[in-house]
């Protein structure tokens, strides 16, 4: 099926199978491998991207559902948002960066507790979350 969308500001068009997820389109067809796939059923948050400005799970979105949409992946976001040293293995990083970018886009400053609750949709198995939260709080300030 024919698909047209923009990814990190660059128009893309091509033929895709309807069952192809947006995550697999990004990773396997476009080689944008910054977006990671962990659980592939919406629980871990590693595959989060911005879809028309809203954070969404790319593993829970068919590529064909994104027809005409503007997709932003971690490659299209400033790396200063959460620096690499806030993580250990880095597998979850893209999901956290994109989720934090979506949250902070409203310009409202959040406290630690609220941020922790809002970022609960992203799993990190290394850090215990503290350095990640500290980094987002520093970025806000």
């Amino acid at each position: 099926m024919r698909l047209e969308l923009t990814i990190n500001g660059i128009p893309w068009q091509g033929e895709v199978e309807p069952r192809l997820t947006l995550a697999d389109l990004l990773r396997d067809r476009l080689r944008l491998t910054g977006t990671h796939l962990g659980c592939e059923h919406g629980v871990c948050g590693a595959c989060t991207v911005l879809l028309d400005g809203e954070a969404a799970r790319s593993c829970l979105t068919l590529a064909v559902q994104a027809e005409g949409a503007a997709v932003i992946t971690v490659e299209g976001l400033p790396s200063s948002l959460i620096p690499e040293n806030a993580f250990q293995c880095g597998f979850c990083r893209a999901g956290f960066v994109v989720s934090a970018a979506a949250l902070l886009s409203d310009g409202r400053r959040r406290g630690r507790q609220e941020l922790a609750e809002e970022l609960a949709g992203n799993i990190c198995r290394c850090t215990g979350y503290r350095p990640i939260l500290e980094a987002v709080l520093r970025y806000q300030a």
């Binding site: 309807p18 069952r19 997820t21 592939e40 059923h41 919406g42 799970r57 593993c59 829970l60 979105t61 068919l62 064909v64 559902q65």
Partner: peptide, 26 residues
């Protein structure tokens, strides 16, 4: 029917649902 897909797409991925046709209501 496919609404937002946040429940159906995991079911498709795990092949707990294998419909012949998806009707996207988006």
């Amino acid at each position: 029917p496919l609404a937002g897909g946040q429940s159906l797409i995991p079911l498709l991925a795990m092949r707990l649902a294998q419909p012949a046709m998806i009707v996207d209501l988006g």
